[in-house]
Write a protein that binds this DNA or RNA. Structure first.
Length: 904
RNA sequence: GGGCGGAUAGCUCAGCUGGUUAGAGCACUUCGUUUACACCGAAGGGGUCGGGGGUUCAAGUCCCUCUCUGCCCACCA
């Protein structure tokens, strides 16, 4: 058997095969779980809507962390008996996708305008097909256990219907409206974008100060601006009402430079007396602040730029110039008329288009908006009242702040790729909002009393509008489908904190409004993945790592474990390739523990247990009286892991649980138990080797269950090879985590002493450079643990490489002269080793140990004398300190006695 | 300007509601090819938990303050 298994675990030869098998068997489907009777009837379904990646994107490690966490949750919940539904999908990503395809067309000498709207849409669809395969291929390779048959795309017919239904409903309720407002215009993309799609960057600029002349006087008001070209759009000048210098000019008229157009001076509280000159010009047509100030004072808006952000005909001789050229030329013209005062360096915050990088131009334009105020308050309430929990909770404040200061959401985009706005216009501009053109026609017929030609709105919706419906649109809403009834609301919405506003908040608002329920119970936010150099990983930075590269080098499990351990919710993760390597080694370690078992299990029976529930089946354990100390110890540690697993999972401590498992499997199961098991397995006692094999098989089998959500492929690969298991449960994925059991704390304490003794002896060997091959003869005695030592002589002999016949343990042990004494708790270990014995050095060594122990004892004693401590500290802490003190006292006494016994 | 994090071993980071002698991986030193594994094992070195105050019987953990650093939000033109 063992000869068939390779010495090193090779992920390549298992992962793809197992992934395909899981999917073919339908194990990722909730229906399969139910058919197989795997469900615990007391547990509710566990549902995750997968955040849909951009369909034309390529996944990088930032997506992989999402896949890893969600798959962890899905698998762990399945193993707890929940019915799990995890719905995958992709997002059409309006702007992002359209940009890519347009760029492609441009490279081949074409353009979307050249081929027209419908041909362009066909072009994008074909891109979608190609990239979609790549993304889902990447995800499958990571082994994610979502229900692929329920996969969705935001432009699917059903999802499009959900979009139109919601739009019509919100429109009819007056929550969606159309109007001319100042919006963020992206000149490169030729569309409006929402506030969230604008990023700000500090740049070195100039503050220009110039003169605003009064109409009927030689006086002027000095004004500072960073954008002198916008004077052409000025429709007012603001001063502070209490300003001694200019406050009095309020109500008078000033003349716009170069145009001599008269505009009013208004008094406004928002003017900062200490900044600039204490007066600012108002350009309501191209600045958000000015827009609001203008509204307050009833000032008109003038647009001076065209859609390319070049000056338009209102700029007269400057028409056609870009913003930058215009600025220089206009400033020069002002200087020529002696209107300029000074220029000084000034750092400015420039608004940039998130997608295309160029400077955003605020412009008045006709757009569609969603009224946010009331929806935002409801979205606040559900978090306040705990109907939705945000993990980690530190994001609650951020969420509230955003909702409290929300502005209406501009949802129309001047693009071709997306959900077209379901509104049709009559010849007179009358709007008909309807599910489709027929329904619009019906409305029009009623309105006009006759058949009329209608034209649909040209714009499409912000891509986040359709993703805002995701948790319910993927389940069939607005139809009352079975899935919707059963799986809505979702259990967890897991995503990166960077899209809390973009996506999470909007899903909550739209979910509450449209379904009357919260869309999910928990929001779990993960951190960003940073590259090894600490920078944020992203495609535009050029440092994005393709998960497949890591997978092919180290295996998917190694990658997943690296993304799942060492993380805590909301905290960023810096990936280090050393972690991948280490985790690959870990996989190999487990593989070899399994090979070890198989090599020794060949001739042994590994009977399966007979629990009430097949999904709990494991290897049967020997009767309690056949268990050795090591057996009891490893089972006690397993019991602790069992307790921890559920607790940590409930607290979202995925990283901590992963680390516990790693340490348990490598440093306890492999380093200690397997080493100790060699004694039993190779001994002559057939019952004992049988028992040892059973314990090892049991612990390994259980470990695989807990490790499975982290390393699904490795655990499945081993599961498939372990004798008997797969005939009961076909896959580790559907096996159940055990209910917590009692921990044998005595075994933990006892074995802990054995470990300390073994370490002390190994340490001594190393310190004295004793030939590693040499079997030591020792005497080991103790006042209180004599029986333990006597019962575990074999174990100590094997682990510490002692002489199998020349040692005595417990009562029989005798101190000899001329020896080194090791003191471990109250155990004395005597080495008759005259050859290396330097009596003075030996005394010193023991004396320093005594001093050290005495210091500890005194510290503990001081604590116990302190009545403040004994009266205020919890009982178990006091007890622990008492036990510690008496143990230390005993140790000190013993070592001192041994010191006195030393000759000289 | 407001808000939220971070600062723990040479590096990257864990450390949950305060309670053993603060941990891991990598790196480092020494030793070891013992038939699960050299993608290994054993033994070690290395930290006054950013500085300073405070609360407490007890502080890496709670409070205040300072320094450095990252991010988010914001109408100083």
């Amino acid at each position: 058997m063992s000869t068939e298994l390779s010495r090193t675990y090779d992920p390549k030869s298992y992962e793809e095969k197992l992934g395909a098998w899981w999917e073919e068997q339908g194990f990722f489907k909730p229906e399969t779980q139910a058919e197989m009777g795997q469900l615990d009837p007391d547990k509710p379904p566990f549902v995750i809507p997968m955040p849909p990646p951009n369909v034309t994107g390529m996944l990088h490690l930032g997506h992989a962390i999402m896949d890893a966490i969600e798959d962890f949750l899905a698998r762990a919940k399945r193993q707890q008996g929940h019915e799990v539904l995890w719905v995958p999908g992709t997002d059409h990503a309006g702007i992002a996708t359209q940009s890519i395809v347009e760029q492609f067309l441009e490279e081949s000498g074409s353009s979307r305008q050249a081929i027209g709207r419908s041909a362009f849409e066909r072009e994008v669809w074909s891109w979608k097909e190609e990239y979609h395969g790549r993304i889902s291929g990447q995800q499958r390779r990571l082994g994610i256990s979502c229900d692929w048959e329920r996969e969705r795309f935001t432009l699917d017919p059903n999802l499009s219907r959900a979009v139109r239904t919601s739009f019509v409903r919100l429109f009819e309720e007056g929550l969606i409206y159309r109007g001319d407002y100042l919006v963020n215009w992206s000149p490169k993309l030729q569309t409006a974008v929402s506030d969230l799609e604008v990023e700000y960057e500090e740049r070195e600029g100039t503050l220009y100060t110039f003169k605003y002349r009064l109409q009927d006087s030689e006086e002027y008001i000095p004004v500072a601006t960073t954008r002198p070209e916008t004077v052409l759009g000025d429709t007012g000048l603001a001063v502070h009402p209490e300003d001694k210098r200019y406050g009095g000019y309020a109500g008078r008229q000033v003349l716009v430079p170069l145009q001599d157009r008269a505009i009013p001076v208004v008094a406004d509280d928002s003017v900062d007396l200490d900044f600039g000159t204490g007066a600012f010009k108002i350009t309501p047509g191209h600045d958000h602040t000015d827009y609001e100030v203008g509204q307050r004072h009833g000032l008109p808006q003038i647009s001076i730029f065209d859609k390319n952000a070049n000056l338009n005909e209102t700029a007269g001789e400057f028409a056609g110039l870009s913003r930058e050229e215009g600025r220089a030329r206009i400033w020069a013209a002002m200087a020529a008329q002696d209107l300029t005062i000074k220029e000084e360096p000034h750092s400015v915050r420039v608004p940039l288009s998130q997608r295309s990088g160029e400077i955003i131009e605020p412009m008045i334009s006709t757009q569609w908006f969603v009224r946010m105020k009331d929806m935002a308050q409801e979205a606040r309430t559900v978090v306040e009242t705990g109907q939705i929990e945000i993990v980690p909770s530190s994001f609650v404040k951020v969420y509230f702040h955003w909702l409290d200061n929300i502005r209406d959401w501009c949802i129309s985009r001047q693009l071709w790729w997306g959900h077209r706005i379901p509104v049709w216009y009559g010849p007179d501009g009358q709007m008909f909002c309807a599910m489709d053109e027929d329904a619009a026609q019906d409305q029009a017929r009623l309105h006009y009393g006759t058949q009329t030609q209608l034209a649909q709105d040209e714009d499409v919706l912000d891509t986040w509008y359709s993703s805002g419906l995701w948790p319910f649109s993927i389940l069939g809403w607005p139809e009352q489908t079975k899935d919707f009834a059963k799986y809505y609301p979702a259990s967890v919405l897991e995503t990166g904190y960077d899209i809390l506003f973009f996506w999470v908040a909007r899903m909550i608002m739209l979910g509450l409004k449209l379904t009357g329920q919260v869309p999910f119970r928990v929001v779990y936010l993960h951190g960003l993945v940073r590259a090894e150099d600490g920078r944020k990983m992203s495609k535009s930075e050029g440092n994005a790592v393709d998960p497949l590269d890591i997978v092919s080098e180290y295996g998917a499990d190694a990658l997943r474990l690296a993304l799942l351990t060492g993380i805590s919710p909301g905290n960023d993760l810096t990936v280090q390739s050393s972690r991948f390597e280490n985790n690959r080694n870990f996989a190999n370690k487990i593989w070899n523990a399994f090979r070890f078992l198989m090599a020794h299990a060949e001739n042994l029976k590994l009977p399966l247990s007979q629990p009430d529930n097949d999904f709990l089946t494991s290897y049967e354990l020997p009767a309690a009286n056949h268990l050795t100390l090591v057996d009891r110890w490893i089972l006690a540690r397993l019991a602790e892991i069992t307790q921890e697993a559920e607790k940590l999972l409930d607290a979202w401590q995925i990283g901590e649980l992963g680390k516990s498992l790693y340490d348990f499997i490598w440093h306890e199961l492999c380093d200690w138990f397997v080493e100790a098991a060699k004694v039993g397995l190779r001994g002559a006692d057939a019952d004992r080797s049988q028992a040892t094999a059973q314990v090892l098989a049991h612990v390994l089998c259980q470990s695989l269950r807990y490790l499975h959500p982290y390393m699904p492929f490795l655990t499945e690969a081993i599961w498939q090879e372990l004798p008997g298991l797969k005939t009961v449960i076909p896959t580790v994925m559907l096996s159940r985590w055990s209910a917590p059991v009692d921990v044998d704390t005595q075994a933990l304490r006892d074995f802990n002493l054995i470990q300390k003794i073994v370490r002390a002896i190994r340490n001594l060997r190393s310190e004295y450079k004793i030939d590693p091959g040499l079997r030591l003869k020792v005497q080991m005695s103790s006042w209180t643990r004599s029986e333990l030592l006597a019962a575990n002589g074999d174990l100590l002999t094997a682990l510490a490489r002692l002489d199998s016949t020349g040692c005595q343990f417990g009562q029989e042990a005798k101190k000899t002269d001329q020896c080194i004494t090791l003191n471990v708790e109250d155990v004395a270990i005597y080495f008759p080793w005259a050859g290396i014995l330097d009596m003075e050095a030996e005394k010193e060594r023991m004396q320093s140990q005594v001093n050290d122990l005495r210091r500890q004892y005194e510290r503990t004693q001081a604590l116990l004398i302190n009545t403040a401590f004994t009266s205020k500290a919890p009982a178990h802490v006091v007890v622990r300190e008492r036990e510690k003190a008496s143990k230390l006292e005993l140790e000190v006494q013993q070592i001192e006695q041994r010191l006195r016994e030393l000759p000289g």
